[in-house]
């Protein structure tokens, strides 16, 4: 059993403590916006916020998430309004296949919370998610647009 706080709700799930947080989120809680890409914390498709910090949920065990506040892509919008990063992604038509983009958005949202006006170098440092379609130019453009709004 594990007690998780996901998107502001306390949820008790029947899961072994050594289950990766990614799979608990996807399978036991049923939120599938967090994606499986590699399972070894390389690609970032599974990025969520743990106590406000961008983390790769495939590399974190459920037991390590106990008592922490977890936000997934489904919890990023608040009061029925998209998060400004989500809105920028729509305005700048960022996604191609889109599979990596929920993780990308979570990574960017965390970056902008800590660094509201990132330089290109700070973006390069913080955003290390893989996108095979190659949306990087639009990702950068949308980040700057949010920062300068």
């Amino acid at each position: 059993m594990a007690n998780l706080t996901i998107n502001g709700k306390k949820i008790e799930i029947d899961v072994e403590p050594d289950t990766p947080l990614l799979w608990a989120i996807r399978e036991n809680i049923g939120l599938t916006g967090t994606k499986y890409g590699c399972g070894i914390a390389q690609c970032g498709a599974c990025t969520v916020h743990v106590d406000g910090v961008a983390m790769r949920s495939c590399g974190m065990l459920v037991s390590e998430a106990d008592g922490k506040a977890i936000t997934t892509i489904e919890g990023l919008a608040a009061d029925g309004k998209l998060h400004k990063v989500q809105q920028a992604w729509i305005d700048h038509d960022v996604p191609q296949c889109g599979y990596c983009q929920t993780g990308m958005i979570m990574a960017v949202a965390a970056l902008l919370k800590d660094t509201p006006k990132p330089t290109d170098e700070e973006i390069n440092e913080a955003i290390t998610n893989i996108c095979r379609c190659g949306t990087f130019a639009q990702v950068r453009e949308a980040i700057h647009a949010v920062a300068n709004a």
């Binding site: 939120l31 599938t32 916006g33 967090t34 994606k35 499986y36 997934t72 892509i73 489904e74 990023l76 919008a77 998209l82 989500q86 992604w89 729509i90 038509d93 960022v94 996604p95 889109g98 599979y99 983009q101 929920t102 958005i105």
Partner: peptide, 17 residues
């Protein structure tokens, strides 16, 4: 603009997985 963007930003898009 693409027609399939909104759900790709919220996690609502259903891929095979």
């Amino acid at each position: 603009k693409r027609l399939d963007t909104a759900d790709k930003t919220t996690g609502a898009m259903v891929y095979g997985i």
